[in-house]
Amino acid sequence: MRLELRRGTLVLAVLACLRTERYGYTLRQALAADGLEMEESTLYPLLRRLEGQGLLTSEWREEEKRKKRFYVLSPGGEAMLAALTDEWRGINASLERIL
């Protein structure tokens, strides 16, 4: 049940973190620092799916002599983040009243 509850929040958290460009490892660190640890086996398929949906853009760059794929929100991702944030706030307010 805990995993089901977390699953829906991960998309919102990833989109919010990618308002700032990051590569996978730094994204995982940022999420973990805010209390949302995520396995690579969850994160990378999610990033590919979000990019496939047009919500993220990415590019390969060399940094510290290693190629890394950097992700950032696309304009569509910014719109989706705003919509999901509004939805989340409404759901959260309802749940707070219920709980």
Rank of each mutant, 00 (worst) to 15 (best):
R28V: 15
R7Y: 15
E62T: 04
I98L: 05
V72P: 09
A32Q: 07
Y71F: 06
E4L: 11
Y23D: 12
L47V: 01
E87P: 08
A82V: 05
Y23L: 14
Q29K: 12
T85D: 09
R49E: 10
L50Y: 01
E37A: 08
M38H: 11
E39C: 05
R97L: 07
E96Q: 11
G35P: 05
E51N: 06
L84D: 02
T57G: 04
A33L: 04
Y23E: 14
L99Y: 06
L43D: 10
L18T: 02
V11D: 09
R2L: 09
R48T: 09
L50T: 00
I98Q: 00
M38F: 08
E40T: 13
R66I: 13
K67A: 14
T9L: 15
K67M: 13
L15R: 05
M1D: 05
A32I: 09
R49K: 08
W88N: 02
A79L: 12
W60D: 13
L31H: 04
M80Y: 04
L18W: 07
G35D: 09
Y44A: 02
T57R: 08
G35K: 04
R48A: 10
L15I: 03
M80A: 12
L99C: 13
A79K: 12
G24R: 06
R19P: 08
D34I: 02
P45R: 01
L81G: 06
G24N: 04
K67N: 15
L5M: 07
Y71H: 06
R22S: 01
K68G: 12
M38Q: 11
G54C: 04
E59K: 03
F70E: 04
A79W: 10
D86I: 10
D34H: 00
A83G: 10
L12E: 01
Q29S: 15
M1I: 05
Y71V: 01
G76R: 07
R97Y: 03
L5F: 08
W88Q: 00
K65Y: 14
L56Y: 01
P45A: 00
L56S: 01
E40R: 15
T57M: 04
A13V: 04
R69C: 03
R97C: 06
E62L: 02
R2W: 13
W60M: 11
S74V: 07
E87F: 10
L73P: 12
F70T: 02
E39K: 04
